[in-house]
Simulated assay, not measured.
Amino acid sequence: MENPWTIILVVALLWVSVVAATRTKLQSIENVDGGICKSMLETQGYTCQEHKVTTEDGYILGLQRIPMGRSGDETPNKKPVLLQHGLLVDASAWLLNPPDQALAFILADNGFDVWLANTRGTNSSRGHTSLTPNDPAYWDWSWDELAAYDLPALFKYVNNQTGQNLHYVGHSLGTLTALAAFSQEKLLNLLRSAALLSPIAYLGQMSSLFIRIFVDLFLAEKQKLLGLHEVPNSETKELVDFICNTLGVDCTDLFETITGPNCCLSSASKAALFKNFPRSTATKNIIHLSQMVRMGTLEMYDYGNEDTNMEHYKQPTPPVYNMANIPKDVPLLLSYGGRDALSDVNDVELLLDNLEDHDKDKLVVEYREDYAHLDFIMSVNANQLVYDPLLAFFKLH
């Protein structure tokens, strides 16, 4: 069984690589022309601002702001909301559906001041005070740094710009980084509440066979040994062209193969996602996530030997993120799905076990049996099933 699955996994990785390679020129144009604001927000009739945020470790992050809805309501002191996307996408993931179905638009039209984050390494966030993406050191980070540097910088910036504490929405990797920060009691002095869609803390029970085989073959580690610090990369473009085109493999089905059978995505939103996927991340980040799948643990990046861990952490093993340390009075909404192959139900239940002492009036848990991973940001009925309760939660806090 190993050989066929190995081929499928390589196809997927290579497909991601070739899509990224063919988009290099477009990405540079997007950054010059204003990117997400001009191509995805202003075209829908929304006011949009481009902001830049510099992290403590020197990364320059792009941040888009939707200060008002289409009605042009300029009510002062609107409550700010920061939206943080997941892995291999950027802020465009919140904008792939029509305005009455996409969360960023819905929040703006409901009187919120919406801020769209872009993780380091993605199109809008490839700047640095001293490095370029061509430098291996630029990619020397995992989601540890996203929790330690990116989120604090973004929270502080939005707070400084608005004079208010903010609501937070995370999807997938955007939930993991927030939970890690909260467990260390970071960000809380600037937070009103947090809504976590497809929450990820533990990955040990994930049901995606695709990802498990990827992890078991140590493919991310092999990429690093080859000196490939950025994922995706374009080293094997010709091979992926051959497999996807000549052999007739339908690469567009890979989203569902990886994330689970989404119930309610329109063909238009799937096409929009394909157009905006993938965005870059660090190979080290993929390795860190792979470690979590293999070990079932929630720890900082493991450097693989006690001496190197000692250099970084002053202990032989990586420090643990303890979810039970999240303060019990932090308002949290967790929304997860029964068909999600990444944010597996059993892993979410393990997270909820760690939150069992959380104040009951500060923890809202919602379960959608027919939802998979992408439904929470792209489903045609998420506006009613997920976003209406989210809006009510935000207005309560």
Rank of each mutant, 00 (worst) to 15 (best):
A12C: 14
C264V: 08
N97T: 06
E230H: 06
S130E: 10
L219S: 02
G35A: 10
K237N: 15
K224A: 10
N123G: 15
Y138R: 09
D353F: 13
S335H: 00
Y202T: 07
A282Y: 02
D307I: 15
R294M: 13
H397F: 01
G227Q: 03
T259E: 09
T283M: 09
Q205H: 12
A93W: 04
E238D: 14
I60Y: 05
V365H: 00
T317V: 11
R279Q: 15
R212E: 12
W5Q: 14
Y303G: 02
H288G: 07
P136Q: 04
M206L: 15
D307R: 15
E221Q: 09
L82C: 12
Q384P: 06
A271M: 11
I200M: 03
W141H: 03
N276I: 05
V293C: 09
C244Q: 15
R294Y: 09
L363C: 00
S379W: 10
L61T: 02
Y371R: 09
M206Q: 12
I258Q: 07
T175W: 02
A194W: 07
S142F: 01
D359A: 06
E50R: 13
T122V: 02
Q84P: 12
D340F: 04
I8G: 14
F182N: 04
T252M: 12
E235L: 14
Y336W: 00
N77A: 04
E221M: 00
N325Q: 09
V18Q: 06
L63K: 08
Y301E: 00
S335N: 07
L14D: 07
D150Y: 06
L176A: 14
E366K: 08
Q164V: 02
E366T: 11
M323L: 07
S335I: 10
Q384F: 13
E299K: 12
S269G: 03
L63D: 12
A195K: 04
V169G: 01
L14A: 12
L103K: 07
K224N: 05
S269Q: 01
M292F: 03
S207R: 14
F277P: 08
A137I: 12
F393K: 11
R192P: 05
L187E: 07
P316K: 08
E30V: 05
P4T: 12
F112H: 06
Q27C: 13
R70P: 08
S343C: 04
L61D: 08
P327Q: 08
F105G: 03
K362L: 10
F218H: 15
L355V: 09
C263K: 07
R368L: 14
A137C: 10
F214T: 08
N77H: 00
S335Q: 10
D375I: 05
E235S: 14
Q164E: 13
F394L: 05
L217K: 10
E221I: 10
S39D: 11
D150Q: 09
H167D: 11
L96G: 11
A117K: 09
Q223K: 01
L96D: 10
D253Y: 01
C244L: 15
I66Y: 03
S124E: 12
W139E: 01
M295N: 15
I286L: 13
I106T: 11
V11Q: 15
N77S: 05
Y202D: 05
F242E: 11
Y321H: 00
Q64A: 15
P76M: 04
N159I: 00
T75Y: 06
G35M: 07
N97M: 03
I60M: 01
V240R: 13
A341I: 00
Q291L: 07
V330K: 08
A372I: 07
P319D: 01
V348F: 02
L226M: 12
L151F: 08
A20W: 11
I36L: 06
D135W: 08
